[in-house]
Design a protein around this nucleic acid. Structure first.
Lengths: 229, 229
DNA sequence: GGAAACAGTGACACTGCGTGCCACTAGCTC
DNA sequence: GAGCTAGTGGCACGCAGTGTCACTGTTTCC
Protein backbone atom coordinates (compact mmCIF):
# COMPACT_ATOMS: atom_id res chain seq x y z
CA UNK A 1 0.00 0.00 0.00
CA UNK A 2 1.17 3.41 -0.92
CA UNK A 3 4.29 4.63 -2.54
CA UNK A 4 6.05 7.71 -3.73
CA UNK A 5 5.78 8.69 -7.34
CA UNK A 6 9.48 9.26 -7.73
CA UNK A 7 11.25 7.40 -10.46
CA UNK A 8 14.60 7.57 -12.12
CA UNK A 9 14.87 9.91 -15.01
CA UNK A 10 16.97 9.27 -18.04
CA UNK A 11 18.06 12.75 -18.93
CA UNK A 12 18.08 14.55 -15.62
CA UNK A 13 17.51 14.40 -11.89
CA UNK A 14 14.60 12.41 -10.58
CA UNK A 15 11.45 13.51 -8.83
CA UNK A 16 8.67 15.77 -9.93
CA UNK A 17 10.56 17.86 -12.41
CA UNK A 18 9.55 18.88 -15.91
CA UNK A 19 10.26 16.38 -18.63
CA UNK A 20 13.28 17.31 -20.64
CA UNK A 21 15.51 20.09 -19.47
CA UNK A 22 18.84 19.40 -21.11
CA UNK A 23 18.25 18.87 -24.79
CA UNK A 24 21.73 19.23 -26.15
CA UNK A 25 24.10 17.86 -23.58
CA UNK A 26 22.94 15.92 -20.57
CA UNK A 27 24.15 17.04 -17.20
CA UNK A 28 27.37 15.17 -16.46
CA UNK A 29 27.33 12.95 -13.43
CA UNK A 30 24.23 14.27 -11.72
CA UNK A 31 23.33 12.25 -8.71
CA UNK A 32 22.98 8.81 -10.16
CA UNK A 33 20.90 9.35 -13.27
CA UNK A 34 22.96 7.82 -16.05
CA UNK A 35 21.54 9.96 -18.82
CA UNK A 36 24.40 10.49 -21.17
CA UNK A 37 26.98 7.84 -21.70
CA UNK A 38 24.83 5.11 -23.08
CA UNK A 39 24.46 4.45 -26.75
CA UNK A 40 21.15 4.74 -28.52
CA UNK A 41 18.34 7.20 -28.73
CA UNK A 42 17.22 8.85 -25.51
CA UNK A 43 13.78 8.05 -24.15
CA UNK A 44 11.13 10.57 -25.07
CA UNK A 45 9.79 10.82 -21.54
CA UNK A 46 9.82 8.97 -18.22
CA UNK A 47 7.40 6.67 -16.51
CA UNK A 48 7.01 9.15 -13.67
CA UNK A 49 6.20 12.01 -16.01
CA UNK A 50 3.78 9.85 -17.94
CA UNK A 51 2.06 8.81 -14.73
CA UNK A 52 1.83 12.43 -13.65
CA UNK A 53 0.19 13.46 -16.92
CA UNK A 54 -2.18 10.51 -16.81
CA UNK A 55 -3.29 11.25 -13.25
CA UNK A 56 -4.14 14.80 -14.21
CA UNK A 57 -6.38 13.60 -17.02
CA UNK A 58 -7.95 10.92 -14.85
CA UNK A 59 -8.79 13.53 -12.25
CA UNK A 60 -10.37 15.72 -14.86
CA UNK A 61 -12.23 13.26 -17.02
CA UNK A 62 -12.40 10.04 -15.03
CA UNK A 63 -10.43 6.85 -15.53
CA UNK A 64 -12.87 5.04 -17.78
CA UNK A 65 -13.49 8.03 -20.01
CA UNK A 66 -9.77 8.44 -20.63
CA UNK A 67 -8.22 6.44 -23.43
CA UNK A 68 -4.61 5.45 -23.78
CA UNK A 69 -4.54 7.65 -26.85
CA UNK A 70 -5.50 10.61 -24.68
CA UNK A 71 -2.63 9.97 -22.32
CA UNK A 72 -0.13 9.38 -25.09
CA UNK A 73 -1.22 12.52 -26.90
CA UNK A 74 -0.96 14.61 -23.73
CA UNK A 75 2.53 13.31 -23.15
CA UNK A 76 3.51 13.86 -26.75
CA UNK A 77 4.30 10.25 -27.50
CA UNK A 78 2.74 7.55 -29.62
CA UNK A 79 0.24 5.09 -28.32
CA UNK A 80 2.60 2.20 -28.93
CA UNK A 81 5.28 3.90 -26.89
CA UNK A 82 2.96 4.25 -23.93
CA UNK A 83 2.84 0.48 -23.65
CA UNK A 84 6.61 0.36 -23.42
CA UNK A 85 6.49 2.44 -20.26
CA UNK A 86 3.49 0.68 -18.68
CA UNK A 87 2.13 -2.77 -19.29
CA UNK A 88 -1.44 -1.55 -19.11
CA UNK A 89 -3.57 1.50 -18.60
CA UNK A 90 -4.24 0.22 -15.09
CA UNK A 91 -0.58 0.14 -14.18
CA UNK A 92 -0.06 3.81 -14.84
CA UNK A 93 -2.11 4.67 -11.77
CA UNK A 94 0.37 2.90 -9.55
CA UNK A 95 3.55 4.36 -10.94
CA UNK A 96 6.65 2.62 -9.66
CA UNK A 97 5.20 0.76 -6.72
CA UNK A 98 7.81 -1.97 -6.74
CA UNK A 99 10.71 0.35 -6.11
CA UNK A 100 8.99 1.73 -3.04
CA UNK A 101 8.22 -1.78 -1.91
CA UNK A 102 11.89 -2.63 -1.90
CA UNK A 103 12.36 -0.10 0.84
CA UNK A 104 9.81 -1.84 3.01
CA UNK A 105 11.58 -5.14 2.46
CA UNK A 106 14.84 -3.56 3.47
CA UNK A 107 13.28 -1.94 6.53
CA UNK A 108 11.84 -5.26 7.65
CA UNK A 109 15.10 -7.05 7.10
CA UNK A 110 16.83 -4.46 9.24
CA UNK A 111 14.46 -4.97 12.17
CA UNK A 112 16.23 -6.27 15.30
CA UNK A 113 15.58 -10.01 15.72
CA UNK A 114 14.14 -9.56 19.20
CA UNK A 115 11.32 -7.32 17.93
CA UNK A 116 8.04 -9.24 17.94
CA UNK A 117 6.96 -10.11 14.42
CA UNK A 118 3.62 -8.34 14.58
CA UNK A 119 5.13 -5.21 16.05
CA UNK A 120 7.77 -5.14 13.35
CA UNK A 121 5.12 -5.38 10.65
CA UNK A 122 3.04 -2.72 12.33
CA UNK A 123 6.01 -0.36 12.37
CA UNK A 124 7.17 -1.12 8.84
CA UNK A 125 3.74 -0.66 7.30
CA UNK A 126 3.32 2.69 9.00
CA UNK A 127 6.73 3.81 7.75
CA UNK A 128 5.94 2.55 4.29
CA UNK A 129 2.91 4.78 4.22
CA UNK A 130 4.48 7.89 5.66
CA UNK A 131 4.89 10.67 3.15
CA UNK A 132 6.34 14.15 3.28
CA UNK A 133 3.61 16.82 3.31
CA UNK A 134 4.56 17.85 -0.21
CA UNK A 135 3.46 14.49 -1.53
CA UNK A 136 0.45 14.00 0.72
CA UNK A 137 -2.10 15.58 -1.54
CA UNK A 138 -0.75 13.80 -4.57
CA UNK A 139 -0.85 10.51 -2.76
CA UNK A 140 -4.40 11.05 -1.60
CA UNK A 141 -5.62 11.75 -5.11
CA UNK A 142 -3.87 8.69 -6.42
CA UNK A 143 -5.38 6.41 -3.81
CA UNK A 144 -8.82 7.96 -4.21
CA UNK A 145 -8.59 7.14 -7.87
CA UNK A 146 -7.44 3.58 -7.30
CA UNK A 147 -9.87 2.72 -4.54
CA UNK A 148 -12.74 4.51 -6.25
CA UNK A 149 -12.43 2.96 -9.69
CA UNK A 150 -13.65 -0.63 -10.04
CA UNK A 151 -11.20 -1.47 -12.81
CA UNK A 152 -8.33 -0.25 -10.65
CA UNK A 153 -9.65 -1.89 -7.50
CA UNK A 154 -9.61 -5.17 -9.36
CA UNK A 155 -6.18 -4.60 -10.82
CA UNK A 156 -4.71 -3.59 -7.49
CA UNK A 157 -5.02 -7.17 -6.29
CA UNK A 158 -2.20 -8.01 -8.64
CA UNK A 159 -0.04 -5.18 -7.35
CA UNK A 160 -0.70 -6.20 -3.75
CA UNK A 161 0.71 -9.61 -4.45
CA UNK A 162 4.29 -8.46 -4.19
CA UNK A 163 3.41 -6.53 -1.06
CA UNK A 164 2.07 -9.72 0.50
CA UNK A 165 5.17 -11.58 -0.58
CA UNK A 166 7.34 -9.12 1.29
CA UNK A 167 5.27 -9.57 4.44
CA UNK A 168 5.04 -13.34 4.13
CA UNK A 169 8.77 -13.68 3.53
CA UNK A 170 9.50 -11.70 6.66
CA UNK A 171 7.12 -13.76 8.79
CA UNK A 172 8.47 -16.98 7.34
CA UNK A 173 12.04 -16.01 7.98
CA UNK A 174 11.42 -14.87 11.54
CA UNK A 175 9.31 -17.81 12.60
CA UNK A 176 11.18 -20.59 10.83
CA UNK A 177 8.39 -21.48 8.44
CA UNK A 178 8.23 -21.82 4.68
CA UNK A 179 6.89 -18.78 2.83
CA UNK A 180 4.16 -20.93 1.37
CA UNK A 181 2.93 -22.10 4.77
CA UNK A 182 -0.48 -21.09 5.98
CA UNK A 183 0.67 -18.84 8.80
CA UNK A 184 2.89 -16.43 6.81
CA UNK A 185 0.34 -16.29 4.03
CA UNK A 186 -2.57 -15.67 6.37
CA UNK A 187 -0.66 -12.97 8.22
CA UNK A 188 0.18 -11.26 4.94
CA UNK A 189 -3.42 -11.42 3.72
CA UNK A 190 -4.78 -10.15 7.02
CA UNK A 191 -2.36 -7.23 7.19
CA UNK A 192 -3.17 -6.30 3.64
CA UNK A 193 -6.84 -6.39 4.50
CA UNK A 194 -6.70 -4.09 7.48
CA UNK A 195 -4.36 -1.77 5.62
CA UNK A 196 -6.83 -1.39 2.78
CA UNK A 197 -9.64 -0.91 5.28
CA UNK A 198 -7.59 1.85 6.84
CA UNK A 199 -7.00 3.49 3.48
CA UNK A 200 -10.69 3.40 2.64
CA UNK A 201 -11.49 4.96 5.99
CA UNK A 202 -8.90 7.66 5.41
CA UNK A 203 -10.42 8.58 2.07
CA UNK A 204 -13.83 9.16 3.63
CA UNK A 205 -12.37 11.68 6.06
CA UNK A 206 -11.07 14.74 4.20
CA UNK A 207 -8.76 16.16 6.83
CA UNK A 208 -7.59 12.95 8.44
CA UNK A 209 -4.03 11.78 8.84
CA UNK A 210 -3.33 8.53 7.02
CA UNK A 211 -0.82 7.13 9.45
CA UNK A 212 -3.13 7.73 12.37
CA UNK A 213 -6.02 5.78 10.88
CA UNK A 214 -3.67 3.13 9.59
CA UNK A 215 -2.23 2.80 13.05
CA UNK A 216 -5.67 2.20 14.52
CA UNK A 217 -6.52 -0.33 11.84
CA UNK A 218 -3.28 -2.26 12.22
CA UNK A 219 -3.61 -2.28 15.98
CA UNK A 220 -6.96 -4.03 15.67
CA UNK A 221 -5.12 -6.91 14.10
CA UNK A 222 -1.99 -6.83 16.22
CA UNK A 223 -3.92 -6.67 19.50
CA UNK A 224 -6.54 -9.10 18.23
CA UNK A 225 -10.05 -8.15 17.21
CA UNK A 226 -11.51 -9.73 20.32
CA UNK A 227 -9.81 -6.95 22.26
CA UNK A 228 -11.98 -4.33 20.52
CA UNK A 229 -15.29 -6.12 20.36
CA UNK B 1 -15.72 -17.34 -0.73
CA UNK B 2 -17.23 -20.36 -2.30
CA UNK B 3 -20.65 -21.09 -3.60
CA UNK B 4 -22.77 -23.71 -5.20
CA UNK B 5 -23.26 -23.71 -8.91
CA UNK B 6 -27.03 -23.83 -8.67
CA UNK B 7 -28.90 -21.13 -10.52
CA UNK B 8 -32.43 -20.30 -11.52
CA UNK B 9 -33.73 -22.12 -14.49
CA UNK B 10 -35.18 -20.41 -17.50
CA UNK B 11 -38.69 -21.70 -17.25
CA UNK B 12 -39.16 -20.33 -13.79
CA UNK B 13 -39.02 -16.82 -12.46
CA UNK B 14 -35.60 -15.58 -11.56
CA UNK B 15 -34.00 -14.50 -8.33
CA UNK B 16 -35.87 -14.83 -5.09
CA UNK B 17 -39.29 -15.45 -6.54
CA UNK B 18 -41.03 -18.72 -5.83
CA UNK B 19 -39.59 -21.56 -7.87
CA UNK B 20 -41.48 -22.94 -10.74
CA UNK B 21 -42.11 -26.64 -11.18
CA UNK B 22 -40.36 -27.70 -14.34
CA UNK B 23 -42.79 -30.14 -15.91
CA UNK B 24 -41.11 -31.55 -18.95
CA UNK B 25 -37.37 -31.29 -18.59
CA UNK B 26 -35.36 -30.11 -15.65
CA UNK B 27 -32.04 -31.79 -16.23
CA UNK B 28 -29.21 -29.27 -16.54
CA UNK B 29 -27.58 -31.59 -18.98
CA UNK B 30 -27.35 -30.45 -22.56
CA UNK B 31 -30.04 -30.70 -25.16
CA UNK B 32 -33.56 -30.32 -23.93
CA UNK B 33 -35.65 -27.24 -24.29
CA UNK B 34 -36.33 -25.81 -20.85
CA UNK B 35 -39.71 -25.56 -19.24
CA UNK B 36 -42.37 -23.13 -20.35
CA UNK B 37 -44.72 -20.98 -18.29
CA UNK B 38 -44.51 -17.35 -19.24
CA UNK B 39 -45.14 -15.26 -22.30
CA UNK B 40 -42.39 -14.61 -24.75
CA UNK B 41 -39.67 -16.71 -26.28
CA UNK B 42 -37.96 -19.18 -23.99
CA UNK B 43 -34.32 -18.67 -23.10
CA UNK B 44 -31.96 -20.75 -25.17
CA UNK B 45 -29.99 -21.93 -22.15
CA UNK B 46 -29.33 -21.12 -18.50
CA UNK B 47 -26.58 -19.27 -16.73
CA UNK B 48 -25.68 -22.43 -14.82
CA UNK B 49 -25.44 -24.50 -17.97
CA UNK B 50 -23.41 -21.82 -19.68
CA UNK B 51 -21.04 -21.66 -16.72
CA UNK B 52 -20.67 -25.44 -16.77
CA UNK B 53 -19.78 -25.45 -20.46
CA UNK B 54 -17.36 -22.59 -20.02
CA UNK B 55 -15.57 -24.24 -17.10
CA UNK B 56 -15.03 -27.35 -19.16
CA UNK B 57 -13.38 -25.35 -21.91
CA UNK B 58 -11.31 -23.31 -19.46
CA UNK B 59 -10.04 -26.53 -17.92
CA UNK B 60 -9.08 -27.87 -21.29
CA UNK B 61 -7.65 -24.83 -23.01
CA UNK B 62 -6.99 -22.30 -20.27
CA UNK B 63 -8.93 -19.16 -19.47
CA UNK B 64 -6.95 -16.72 -21.56
CA UNK B 65 -6.87 -18.93 -24.61
CA UNK B 66 -10.64 -19.30 -24.56
CA UNK B 67 -12.65 -16.62 -26.30
CA UNK B 68 -16.24 -15.69 -25.63
CA UNK B 69 -16.99 -16.93 -29.12
CA UNK B 70 -15.69 -20.35 -28.11
CA UNK B 71 -18.01 -20.51 -25.13
CA UNK B 72 -21.00 -19.25 -27.04
CA UNK B 73 -20.39 -21.70 -29.85
CA UNK B 74 -20.05 -24.60 -27.42
CA UNK B 75 -23.33 -23.62 -25.79
CA UNK B 76 -25.00 -23.16 -29.14
CA UNK B 77 -25.84 -19.51 -28.65
CA UNK B 78 -24.65 -16.29 -30.20
CA UNK B 79 -21.84 -14.25 -28.79
CA UNK B 80 -24.23 -11.37 -28.12
CA UNK B 81 -26.49 -13.62 -26.13
CA UNK B 82 -23.65 -14.73 -23.90
CA UNK B 83 -23.36 -11.19 -22.62
CA UNK B 84 -26.99 -11.27 -21.57
CA UNK B 85 -26.29 -14.15 -19.22
CA UNK B 86 -23.01 -12.80 -17.86
CA UNK B 87 -21.71 -9.29 -17.76
CA UNK B 88 -18.22 -10.39 -18.65
CA UNK B 89 -16.11 -13.39 -19.45
CA UNK B 90 -14.72 -13.10 -15.93
CA UNK B 91 -18.12 -13.39 -14.32
CA UNK B 92 -18.85 -16.75 -15.86
CA UNK B 93 -16.25 -18.36 -13.63
CA UNK B 94 -18.16 -17.33 -10.53
CA UNK B 95 -21.61 -18.42 -11.56
CA UNK B 96 -24.31 -17.24 -9.21
CA UNK B 97 -22.23 -16.27 -6.23
CA UNK B 98 -24.70 -13.73 -4.92
CA UNK B 99 -27.50 -16.23 -4.38
CA UNK B 100 -25.20 -18.36 -2.26
CA UNK B 101 -24.10 -15.29 -0.36
CA UNK B 102 -27.66 -14.60 0.70
CA UNK B 103 -27.61 -17.81 2.64
CA UNK B 104 -24.60 -16.66 4.61
CA UNK B 105 -26.35 -13.41 5.40
CA UNK B 106 -29.39 -15.32 6.61
CA UNK B 107 -27.26 -17.69 8.68
CA UNK B 108 -25.51 -14.79 10.36
CA UNK B 109 -28.76 -13.00 11.04
CA UNK B 110 -30.07 -16.15 12.69
CA UNK B 111 -27.13 -16.43 15.06
CA UNK B 112 -28.13 -16.12 18.74
CA UNK B 113 -27.27 -12.64 20.04
CA UNK B 114 -25.18 -14.02 22.88
CA UNK B 115 -22.77 -15.70 20.45
CA UNK B 116 -19.50 -13.77 20.32
CA UNK B 117 -19.15 -11.91 17.04
CA UNK B 118 -15.92 -13.55 15.96
CA UNK B 119 -17.19 -17.01 16.80
CA UNK B 120 -20.34 -16.39 14.80
CA UNK B 121 -18.32 -15.32 11.78
CA UNK B 122 -16.00 -18.27 12.16
CA UNK B 123 -18.96 -20.64 12.15
CA UNK B 124 -20.83 -18.93 9.30
CA UNK B 125 -17.83 -18.84 7.00
CA UNK B 126 -17.16 -22.52 7.55
CA UNK B 127 -20.78 -23.35 6.79
CA UNK B 128 -20.71 -21.12 3.75
CA UNK B 129 -17.83 -23.16 2.40
CA UNK B 130 -19.16 -26.59 3.21
CA UNK B 131 -20.17 -28.55 0.13
CA UNK B 132 -21.66 -31.96 -0.42
CA UNK B 133 -19.09 -34.44 -1.73
CA UNK B 134 -20.76 -34.46 -5.11
CA UNK B 135 -19.88 -30.84 -5.62
CA UNK B 136 -16.46 -30.92 -4.00
CA UNK B 137 -14.48 -31.74 -7.11
CA UNK B 138 -16.37 -29.20 -9.16
CA UNK B 139 -15.78 -26.53 -6.56
CA UNK B 140 -12.12 -27.27 -6.36
CA UNK B 141 -11.68 -26.92 -10.09
CA UNK B 142 -13.56 -23.66 -10.11
CA UNK B 143 -11.49 -22.19 -7.33
CA UNK B 144 -8.25 -23.45 -8.84
CA UNK B 145 -9.20 -21.64 -12.00
CA UNK B 146 -10.10 -18.42 -10.22
CA UNK B 147 -7.12 -18.31 -7.89
CA UNK B 148 -4.73 -19.45 -10.59
CA UNK B 149 -5.69 -16.99 -13.32
CA UNK B 150 -4.47 -13.41 -12.88
CA UNK B 151 -7.42 -11.91 -14.73
CA UNK B 152 -9.82 -13.77 -12.46
CA UNK B 153 -7.83 -13.03 -9.34
CA UNK B 154 -8.16 -9.38 -10.13
CA UNK B 155 -11.81 -9.60 -10.95
CA UNK B 156 -12.60 -11.56 -7.82
CA UNK B 157 -11.92 -8.45 -5.76
CA UNK B 158 -15.16 -7.08 -7.11
CA UNK B 159 -17.07 -10.22 -6.24
CA UNK B 160 -15.63 -10.26 -2.73
CA UNK B 161 -17.06 -6.83 -2.11
CA UNK B 162 -20.55 -8.13 -1.42
CA UNK B 163 -19.07 -10.83 0.76
CA UNK B 164 -17.34 -8.17 2.85
CA UNK B 165 -20.54 -6.19 3.03
CA UNK B 166 -22.34 -9.13 4.55
CA UNK B 167 -19.65 -9.54 7.17
CA UNK B 168 -19.38 -5.84 7.89
CA UNK B 169 -23.13 -5.46 8.25
CA UNK B 170 -23.23 -8.26 10.75
CA UNK B 171 -20.40 -6.82 12.82
CA UNK B 172 -21.93 -3.36 12.67
CA UNK B 173 -25.32 -4.59 13.76
CA UNK B 174 -23.99 -6.67 16.64
CA UNK B 175 -21.60 -4.07 17.99
CA UNK B 176 -23.72 -0.97 17.54
CA UNK B 177 -21.48 0.64 14.96
CA UNK B 178 -22.11 2.04 11.50
CA UNK B 179 -21.29 -0.30 8.62
CA UNK B 180 -18.86 2.25 7.28
CA UNK B 181 -16.90 2.45 10.52
CA UNK B 182 -13.35 1.24 10.65
CA UNK B 183 -13.95 -1.75 12.90
CA UNK B 184 -16.61 -3.56 10.85
CA UNK B 185 -14.72 -2.83 7.65
CA UNK B 186 -11.40 -3.99 9.05
CA UNK B 187 -12.95 -7.17 10.42
CA UNK B 188 -14.51 -7.90 7.04
CA UNK B 189 -11.28 -7.30 5.19
CA UNK B 190 -9.28 -9.40 7.62
CA UNK B 191 -11.67 -12.34 7.47
CA UNK B 192 -11.66 -12.19 3.71
CA UNK B 193 -7.90 -12.22 3.77
CA UNK B 194 -7.48 -15.27 5.93
CA UNK B 195 -10.24 -17.05 4.03
CA UNK B 196 -8.43 -16.53 0.75
CA UNK B 197 -5.18 -17.61 2.34
CA UNK B 198 -6.94 -20.78 3.47
CA UNK B 199 -8.26 -21.40 -0.01
CA UNK B 200 -4.86 -20.97 -1.57
CA UNK B 201 -3.42 -23.38 0.96
CA UNK B 202 -6.14 -25.90 0.20
CA UNK B 203 -5.39 -25.78 -3.50
CA UNK B 204 -1.74 -26.65 -2.93
CA UNK B 205 -2.73 -29.81 -1.07
CA UNK B 206 -4.49 -32.26 -3.40
CA UNK B 207 -6.22 -34.44 -0.86
CA UNK B 208 -6.95 -31.85 1.81
CA UNK B 209 -10.31 -30.96 3.28
CA UNK B 210 -11.26 -27.36 2.65
CA UNK B 211 -13.17 -26.78 5.86
CA UNK B 212 -10.32 -28.10 7.93
CA UNK B 213 -7.75 -25.74 6.47
CA UNK B 214 -10.21 -22.91 6.51
CA UNK B 215 -10.88 -23.60 10.15
CA UNK B 216 -7.19 -23.34 10.95
CA UNK B 217 -6.86 -20.14 8.99
CA UNK B 218 -9.88 -18.48 10.57
CA UNK B 219 -8.75 -19.52 14.01
CA UNK B 220 -5.49 -17.67 13.51
CA UNK B 221 -7.52 -14.53 13.25
CA UNK B 222 -10.14 -15.30 15.89
CA UNK B 223 -7.57 -16.30 18.48
CA UNK B 224 -5.20 -13.53 17.47
CA UNK B 225 -2.01 -14.06 15.46
CA UNK B 226 0.10 -13.36 18.50
CA UNK B 227 -1.21 -16.62 19.90
CA UNK B 228 0.44 -18.57 17.07
CA UNK B 229 3.71 -16.72 16.73
C1' DG C 1 34.62 12.53 -40.27
C1' DG C 2 32.07 8.59 -41.24
C1' DA C 3 30.29 3.94 -40.48
C1' DA C 4 28.49 0.76 -37.36
C1' DA C 5 26.10 -0.47 -33.28
C1' DC C 6 22.43 0.43 -30.42
C1' DA C 7 18.30 2.04 -27.78
C1' DG C 8 14.17 3.96 -28.30
C1' DT C 9 10.01 5.56 -31.26
C1' DG C 10 5.75 5.16 -33.72
C1' DA C 11 2.83 3.59 -37.63
C1' DC C 12 0.09 -0.32 -39.03
C1' DA C 13 -2.48 -4.32 -38.60
C1' DC C 14 -4.66 -7.64 -35.85
C1' DT C 15 -7.21 -10.15 -31.91
C1' DG C 16 -10.60 -9.94 -28.50
C1' DC C 17 -13.82 -7.82 -24.95
C1' DG C 18 -17.82 -5.33 -24.19
C1' DT C 19 -21.91 -2.45 -25.94
C1' DG C 20 -25.68 -0.12 -28.62
C1' DC C 21 -28.88 -0.96 -32.03
C1' DC C 22 -32.40 -3.40 -34.32
C1' DA C 23 -34.68 -6.79 -36.92
C1' DC C 24 -36.18 -11.33 -36.00
C1' DT C 25 -38.14 -15.46 -33.50
C1' DA C 26 -40.99 -18.05 -30.51
C1' DG C 27 -43.92 -18.36 -26.93
C1' DC C 28 -48.35 -16.64 -24.59
C1' DT C 29 -53.36 -14.55 -24.32
C1' DC C 30 -57.46 -12.96 -26.26
C1' DG D 1 -55.69 -15.46 -36.53
C1' DA D 2 -53.81 -10.49 -34.14
C1' DG D 3 -51.25 -8.54 -30.62
C1' DC D 4 -48.21 -8.65 -26.81
C1' DT D 5 -43.91 -10.04 -24.82
C1' DA D 6 -39.38 -11.94 -23.80
C1' DG D 7 -35.46 -13.61 -25.66
C1' DT D 8 -32.06 -14.09 -29.73
C1' DG D 9 -28.28 -12.87 -32.64
C1' DG D 10 -26.14 -10.28 -36.43
C1' DC D 11 -23.64 -5.99 -37.30
C1' DA D 12 -20.87 -2.22 -36.31
C1' DC D 13 -18.26 0.36 -33.15
C1' DG D 14 -14.77 1.85 -29.51
C1' DC D 15 -10.98 0.57 -27.02
C1' DA D 16 -7.09 -2.33 -24.75
C1' DG D 17 -3.17 -4.72 -25.71
C1' DT D 18 0.42 -7.08 -28.98
C1' DG D 19 3.60 -8.33 -32.91
C1' DT D 20 6.16 -6.49 -36.58
C1' DC D 21 9.09 -3.42 -38.77
C1' DA D 22 11.02 0.63 -40.63
C1' DC D 23 12.83 4.82 -38.80
C1' DT D 24 15.38 8.20 -35.73
C1' DG D 25 18.61 9.92 -32.77
C1' DT D 26 22.82 8.94 -29.89
C1' DT D 27 27.34 6.87 -28.77
C1' DT D 28 31.47 4.37 -30.09
C1' DC D 29 34.96 2.77 -32.81
C1' DC D 30 37.85 2.94 -36.95
Amino acid sequence: MGHAGAQDRPGGPGGTEPPDAPPAEAAPADGGAPAAGRAGRRPATTAAELARQALLIFDERGFDATTVDDIAAAAGIGRRTFFRYFQSKNDVAWGDFDAHLERMRAALAATPPQTPVLAALHRAILDFNTYPPSEADWHRRRMALILGTPALQAHSTLRYRRWREVVAEFVAERTGRAVTDLVPQAVAWAFLGVAVAGYEQWLTQPGAELTEILDRSLRLLVDGFAHSL
